[in-house]
Amino acid sequence: MTLGFIRPKTVGELLEVLAEYKDGSKIVAGATDLLVQQRNSKQVEGKPLYLVDITGIPELAYINVESGVVRIGAATTHRDIARSTVIQDVAPFLADACLTVGSPQIRARGTIGGNIINASPAADSLPPLAALSAQVRLVSKRGSRDIAICDFFKGPYKTVIEPGELLQEVFFKVPKNPGNCSFLKIGRREAVAISRLSVAVLLDVDESGKITEAAIAPGSCLPMPARIVRAEETLTGKVPDEETVEAAANEVGEEMVRVSGVRWSTPYKKPVICALTRRAIWKALGVDVD
C-alpha cells in the first residue's frame, strides 16, 4: 500500500528522507519492476510505504571514467548505458547486456541501480558487472561503504542493503583488454524476454595468445551473481584450443548443478549453458563459432 510519494531534488534531501522513513520508504527510479509488482498485488499486504522517487535527482544519472575507473550512477537508464560510447569502448559486453533488457520502452525507464537492487537471478546487467569485479557504493546519512557486486546479494531478490541506504553508483576498473569480452543470452524470444540463460566472459590475452586472466559469470542459473572460478582456472595460462574451451565451458554447467541442484529444467539448461559459455569464450577471443 502506498501512503504517498516524495520527490527529493538532491542526494542530500534524499538521504534525509531515507533516514527518517527507513523501511517505511521504497526508492523508485524507472518503476518498471515496481509497477508490475504492484499490479501483481505483492505489495498490497505489505507495510504502507512512501515511494521516494529519485528520477528528479540529476546527480544520480551519469557515466564517467576517471583514473581508469568507470562510474555509473544508479539512476542511469539501460538505454543510456547501451548507447554510451564510453561503455561501448571500455566494457562493450555491458552495453550489449543492457541492450537486451526488455524493450526500447523499458530500457528508456529502467535503471542499472534498479536492476541491481531488484536482485533477480535473471538480471541482464549482473553477469557483466560480476565479470568486471564491479563494486557498488552504498551511502546513507551515516556514511558510505563499498561492496563487491558478488557480495551484495543474499539470495534471489535479496540484498545486504540496509534501510536508510541508497545505492549511489556501481563502479569498476577499465579492463586491460576491453575487446576480449562477450555477453550472450537466450530468452524465449528475442525481444521483451526474461533471460533463460546468459553468460558474460572477460579475458586478458597476452601477445603470444595465452589467456592470462579470465572472468566467467553466468546468469539465470545460480541464485545470485557469481564467477565460476573452476572455469576461469581452466582457461588461465593456456593458449585456448577447442579442448580447453570445452572443458572450461563444462565447468559452468557442473557448477550450476552443484549450486542449484538437479531441477526439471536441468536436462535442458546444463547442455545449453555449456554451449553458450563455449560460444561466449570464443566470441571474447574474436572467433566466430556456431
Binding site: 520527490r7 518503476a31 518498471t32 528528479g56 538505454r79 520502452q105 528508456a108 525507464r109
Partner: peptide, 20 residues
C-alpha cells in the same frame, strides 16, 4: 506507448508523479 521527453515509454509503467 507514448513519447515522454522525446523517448518512447510504456505509460502503464510510469508513475504519474514522474510526469511532472
Amino acid at each position: 506507448t507514448v513519447i515522454m521527453n522525446g523517448v518512447p515509454v510504456n505509460s502503464c509503467l510510469v508513475p504519474a508523479f514522474q510526469a511532472e
